[in-house]
């Protein structure tokens, strides 16, 4: 049998660790990941945002209309059809966020709204842009705008106050 080779060693780096505390020992652990995320059956909704179209889904069996994508109707189970949501809606409820999840902190303050549409049974969650907290009220008319450079996220659409007289319409 060969003698153990005392020269066998793992190669070492100079990375070290980040320490927050010694007793107890608290170290930094990093974690990061990219997902291959499919929007799957909801893809037409996100593709629609890129085309400046806001799609809801309707059940032609029970005539229930959703302001969000739902592949099948929650009441009767029938497959829904896409339809274009009305050009304007109203603030059903709202808030202004002064804090947020870490990745959104840099965007604060921002307004959130749940939007109601005539002839549609459910609501749509979005951001409301271009108004201060004191200027927002339940029932106010708002309309969607779309990012020109789509990021294929729910934030590709946002809402603004419906055009007052004189302002150009899209």
């Amino acid at each position: 049998m060969k003698k153990p080779n005392k020269k066998i060693r793992l190669p070492e780096t100079e990375e070290g660790g980040t320490l927050f505390n010694l007793d107890p020992l608290i170290v930094k652990q990093h974690y990061e990941i990219d997902y291959l995320h499919s929007y799957a059956q909801d893809s037409p909704f996100f593709a629609g945002l890129a085309k400046g179209v806001l799609l809801g889904s309707e059940c032609r069996n029970c005539n229930y209309r959703y302001a969000t994508p739902r592949k099948t109707c929650m009441y009767c189970g029938h497959e829904t059809e896409w339809f274009e949501l009305p050009a304007t809606g109203r603030v059903h409820t709202w808030t202004t966020c002064y804090y947020a999840g870490e990745v959104f902190l840099k965007e604060t303050p921002f307004n959130l709204v749940l939007v109601e549409f005539d002839g549609v049974d459910t609501l749509f969650l979005s951001r409301l842009v271009g108004v201060e907290t004191g200027e927002i009220s339940i029932g106010m008319e708002i309309r969607p705008r779309f990012l020109r450079n789509s990021r294929f996220k729910a934030t590709d659409v946002y809402f603004v106050p419906a055009a007052p007289d004189g302002e150009e319409k899209k």
Binding site: A100, F104, L114, L125
Partner: peptide
């Protein structure tokens, strides 16, 4: 649909 708007439960409860 919800998380990308702000990732913030307090915002949802506020609404």
């Amino acid at each position: 649909f919800d998380f990308p708007l702000g990732g913030f439960y307090t915002g949802y409860y506020a609404m």
